[in-house]
């Protein structure tokens, strides 16, 4: 068997054990997928405490509904969808949130030449309308196409494409105009 197939079997086994009440197996699922869930929440808000709160709620909901998960791909889809919906629900519940620029933690990676550019890009993303920001996150964090994103957010595919196009246009315009100064 290939390494990928072995890995898929391992995840499937972990999922089955978690569904049968194995606490350690559920802990392994949290560890394996916390980057996905916290990442979506953090890239959407970006506020670490709020992102963690949402991420915790997602896994609590998973614990209550894990019997309904029928495969590892379904698990990933479920986590992305529930996290996305909780982000939108929180935004609707709390209203527009003023982004504290001090919360914009920009990790300097070898790829990023200028952390100031990264910070400015973060500010612009935070200023986008909610659905554009969410769709942008799903597109670039999870590398999903419009069809997959439309299923997750419950929106027609053409609407997703339109939001994505608007978001990129706004970023290119603002960022390109900014760098002209």
């Amino acid at each position: 068997m290939t390494a990928i197939a072995d890995a898929e079997c391992a995840v499937e086994d972990t999922l089955r054990r978690a569904q049968h009440g194995d606490h350690d197996a559920f802990a392994a699922i949290i560890s394996d997928y916390q980057g996905v869930v916290f990442g979506i929440a953090y890239n959407f808000f970006p506020h670490r405490a709020l992102a963690e709160e949402i991420a915790q709620e997602v896994f609590l909901q998973l614990y209550r509904n894990i019997a309904a998960i029928h495969s590892p791909p379904h698990l990933l889809y479920w986590l992305r969808q529930v996290t996305s919906r909780k982000c939108i629900d929180e935004m609707r519940r709390s209203g527009p949130r003023r982004v504290n620029l001090d919360d914009l933690e920009i990790a300097v990676t070898p790829r990023l030449i200028d952390p100031l550019i990264a910070r400015r890009l973060r500010e612009l993303i935070a200023a986008l309308p909610d659905m554009q920001r969410l769709i942008l996150t799903l597109r670039y964090q999870e590398e999903l196409g419009p069809a997959d994103i439309s299923r997750i957010v419950g929106m027609p595919e053409n609407t997703v494409k339109s939001y994505l196009h608007r978001a990129l246009t706004a970023l290119r315009k603002e960022f390109g105009g900014d760098r002209g100064h």
Binding site: N43, T109, L112, I125, R139, Q141, L168
Partner: peptide, 18 residues
């Protein structure tokens, strides 16, 4: 910009002990 977005909007680990 799309390349920058791929690096910026990456999966992020929560604080330790999550």
């Amino acid at each position: 910009i799309e390349s920058e977005l791929s690096h910026l909007l990456r999966r992020t680990e929560p604080p330790p002990g999550f």
